[in-house]
Design a protein around this nucleic acid. Structure first.
Length: 460
DNA sequence: TTTCATT
């Protein structure tokens, strides 16, 4: 019925009102169709705007791809139809690059020219907004991983394009898992509009990603790490969160009490008890979890009253331990905690995380000691409420911090939202920059770069 | 400055 070497094609950019019967005539002209399936959500049956197509003959697939892929745009779509081998057919995405910090002017062709010297390019797309203006970044897919790698080696950081705020970024594109994390961050930042508590939520997220990046650096392969499993769970949680429209609608539990409100109230109480201006105490033991940014935990207990720490120490997975009736936010929130605690609990954390923060923290960072050149970093777009301590904690994970200073307006005593952190070695500074530059906290992204040497900006 | 979706 079908040739053994037949190719399954992925069809993208199809209007959601087209079903199999509507699509069939479009594709039949290239040969006999073996199977054509519109992809729908497993549970809701919602049309996902794409399909799988297998021809009886391999040749038909080749013809259809060259005739249709990116060649025409179906009614109602703003991008051309996609006809290409399904992911399941070929290799993974280890040959696709993300290119950031392009100027707004560069076209697909400009980018292609830049990458051509490194190998054969399968795909090259500058990302554009709905109005067609460039988002200043692109995806470039090579035919092989090694070609992609050599492009990274030669181009990453090699120049600063006109109109870009920093040097060219060339790296492997996010995996699905990483994309999930990114989306999570965006949802979290939306929540932060509504409550100061969720600032914490976001900060945890920054930690989470920092942990992941550290791990990725230390252990080149993360595919088999238990953390992946947790990340997958996280994505499910966030999906549930979106599906329930949690941002738009107030959440109510079966008992009629809003968990969201409940946890926020608990937080505010905790803050008041401690005194909102009391500097947080940094935990003396490194292996308990990452230090909470404000010195307390965002969620002290699950909705059935069991402290999260008990769940951890009993070794029971929180998702299994929680009652199935928990609302999605609560689950996501607790999951976030679990997620950050997980790597440390299993001893998977790379060396920088095992450094004792205690010694440094108990010194007086206020003295603002500066490290040697290359050890000092500048941080901009800090949240208004970040003090020296919060910033210190945020960067402790990358090495020995000599000092951490948020700059404060003398008249108002308000943070100027920037500061400096000094490490005792340049590698820690670089790691911190890599991990934290561009981090979204609340509505802003951190800018983290080397501090300019004192005389750098003086013309004479 | 991370897509548009992959049964």
């Amino acid at each position: 019925m079908k040739e053994p070497d037949a190719i399954k094609l992925f069809i993208g950019q199809i209007p959601r009102n087209l079903e199999e019967k509507d699509l069939k005539p479009i594709f039949e002209q290239f040969g006999k169709i073996y199977e054509l399936t519109v992809i729908k959500d497993k549970y809701t049956g919602v049309h996902k705007g794409c399909a799988f197509l297998t021809y009886c003959a391999r040749e038909s697939a080749v013809k259809a791809q060259s005739a249709l892929h990116e060649q025409k745009t179906l009614p109602g779509m703003n991008r051309p139809i996609q006809v290409k081998p399904a992911d399941s057919e070929g290799r993974g995405e280890d040959r696709k690059l993300f290119v950031g910090m392009l100027g707004k002017q560069q076209s697909d062709e400009d980018v292609r020219k830049m990458f051509e010297p490194f190998g054969s390019i399968d795909e090259c797309t500058v990302l554009k907004g709905p109005d067609g203006t460039s988002k200043g970044c692109a995806f470039v897919k090579f035919q092989s991983h090694s070609e992609a790698q050599s492009a990274i080696n030669s181009l990453h950081g090699s120049r600063t394009l006109p109109g870009a705020s920093s040097s060219l970024v060339v790296k492997f594109a996010d995996t699905d898992k990483e994309r999930g994390m990114r989306r999570m961050q965006q949802v979290a930042s939306q929540l932060s509009i509504y409550s100061p508590v969720t600032l914490n939520f976001n900060a945890y997220n920054a930690y989470t990603q920092a942990v992941l990046q550290q791990q990725a650096l230390a252990a080149q392969s993360s595919y088999l790490s238990p953390v992946s499993t947790v990340a997958a769970l996280q994505m499910q949680q966030m999906a549930a969160l979106n599906a329930n429209g949690i941002i738009a609608a107030p959440l109510t539990s079966s008992s009629g009490e809003s968990h969201l409100h409940h946890s926020i109230t608990a937080e505010l109480l905790a803050l008041q008890e401690r005194g909102a201006n009391t500097p947080p105490t940094i935990a003396a033991t490194p292996i308990s979890a990452l230090p909470p940014l404000n010195g307390y935990s965002p969620v002290q207990a699950t909705s059935n009253g069991q402290p999260i720490s008990e769940i951890y120490s009993s070794g029971v997975h929180p998702y299994q331990a929680q009652s199935p009736a928990l609302d999605p936010l609560q689950q996501a929130y607790a999951g976030m905690q679990y997620y950050t605690a997980y790597p440390t609990a299993y001893g998977l954390v790379s060396q920088p995380f095992l450094q004792q923060p205690t010694l440094v923290a108990q010194q007086q960072p206020q003295l603002q000691r500066e490290g040697p050149e290359g050890c000092n970093i500048f941080i901009y777009h800090l949240p208004q409420e970040f003090t020296d301590s919060e910033m210190l904690q945020m960067f402790l994970t990358f090495g020995n911090v000599i000092s951490a200073k948020v700059f404060v307006d003398r008249a108002t005593n308000q943070s100027k939202c920037f500061g400096f952190v000094s490490f005792d070695n340049p590698a820690s500074a670089q790691t911190a920059i890599q991990a934290m530059n561009g981090f979204q906290i609340g509505m802003k992204r951190l800018k983290v770069q080397l501090k300019r040497p004192k005389d750098a900006n003086r013309p004479y």
